[in-house]
């Protein structure tokens, strides 16, 4: 047998071809994503001079971001909003995913998924604005409820506060929550459910003991896929949140575009990402036992 170096082995391999083929896309992601992310992490440790960034290493931005009451309350509120949105979205989404997967004829499943995804792709800004119209003082909800006589004067707690932000975001991220759960449900072998009932369990118990645990990977995926981006949403709090609905993204935008304080803006952004990552990891650790088992 001929002695062959590792490098020769690799060069001859298909792996080298694959890596080469991926390199344009990878390079783009490194230059346009990894490097910029690295840069804001770097910036977050620098000092803000009025016209330029001073290259002094400092923790001051983080101290400011974590101790200033304003920043801290916005951060906590963002986290709270994100969690509520995630909870509402996923809880509302599960029955839909279940319905499409278990009660819709196979030939019509694509159509349902298509119907569910369409609103997601259509003008985000205008959709958010229309929630303002729906929830507003003279909006659809108020005029509807007053018309039927349930209320005498318009509800005001549904616009320009955290509630309206949660409703609007829950609407925006609905497909994101439905699709992963749907995929997980589709993978469940239907004979398992029959086996569950065959072994004497009721439909409900079968659902709890078989369907739900098997759907967990999808639920976990949809929790993360909703939770992570919502915390950085800018448009919704800006348009429907009012002063008490502001979130982290509005703060970041303020620091960057209005106050020109890049280091503090970066520190807030990095902190927010750090918190999100931490919460996600804790969540993954808590649900880990559901994610084990056969991969597929």
């Amino acid at each position: 047998m001929i002695k062959r170096s590792r490098w020769t082995k690799f060069r001859e391999s298909e792996g080298a071809t694959g890596l080469l083929m991926l390199s344009p896309t990878a390079l783009y992601a490194i230059l346009m994503l990894a490097a910029p992310l690295g840069t804001i992490i770097l910036y977050s440790f620098l000092t803000d001079g009025y016209l330029e960034i001073i290259r002094d290493f400092t923790m001051a931005n983080y101290i400011e971001a974590w101790t200033n009451d304003l920043y801290r309350s916005v951060m906590i509120r963002s986290l709270g909003v994100s969690m509520s949105v995630t909870f509402v979205t996923v809880v509302l989404a599960f029955p839909i995913a279940y319905f499409v997967s278990f009660h819709v004829e196979p030939s019509k499943k694509s159509l349902w998924l298509f119907l569910i995804t369409i609103p997601f792709w259509t003008s985000y800004l205008i959709r958010v604005f229309l929630w303002k119209v729906i929830l507003g003082y003279n909006g659809v909800v108020n005029s509807g409820l007053m018309g039927v006589g349930i209320i005498d004067e318009p509800l005001t707690f549904i616009l320009y506060n955290v509630n309206s932000v949660v409703i609007t975001l829950a609407h925006a991220y609905a497909p994101f929550a439905i699709l992963p759960i749907f995929v997980a449900l589709e993978k469940i072998d239907r004979s398992l459910l029959e086996a569950g009932q065959d072994l004497g369990e009721s439909k409900f118990v079968t659902f709890c003991r078989v369907t739900l645990p098997l759907a967990m990977p999808g639920v976990v995926a949809s929790v993360l896929i909703v939770f992570i981006p919502t915390i950085g949403d800018y448009v919704t709090p800006q348009l429907v949140g009012g002063p008490e609905g502001r979130m982290v993204a509005n703060l970041i935008q303020l620091q960057y575009l209005k106050l020109d304080n890049y280091p503090l803006g970066s520190a807030i952004a990095v902190s927010a990402m750090g918190i999100v990552t931490l919460v996600s990891l804790v969540f993954l650790a808590l649900t880990r036992r559901y994610l084990k088992g056969p991969k597929g």
């Binding site: 992310l37 993360l224 949403d233 800018y234």
Partner: peptide, 10 residues
């Protein structure tokens, strides 16, 4: 999954 604002500012 990354919030777009992070992509934007970086």
């Amino acid at each position: 999954v990354l919030p777009e604002i992070i992509v934007a500012v970086s």
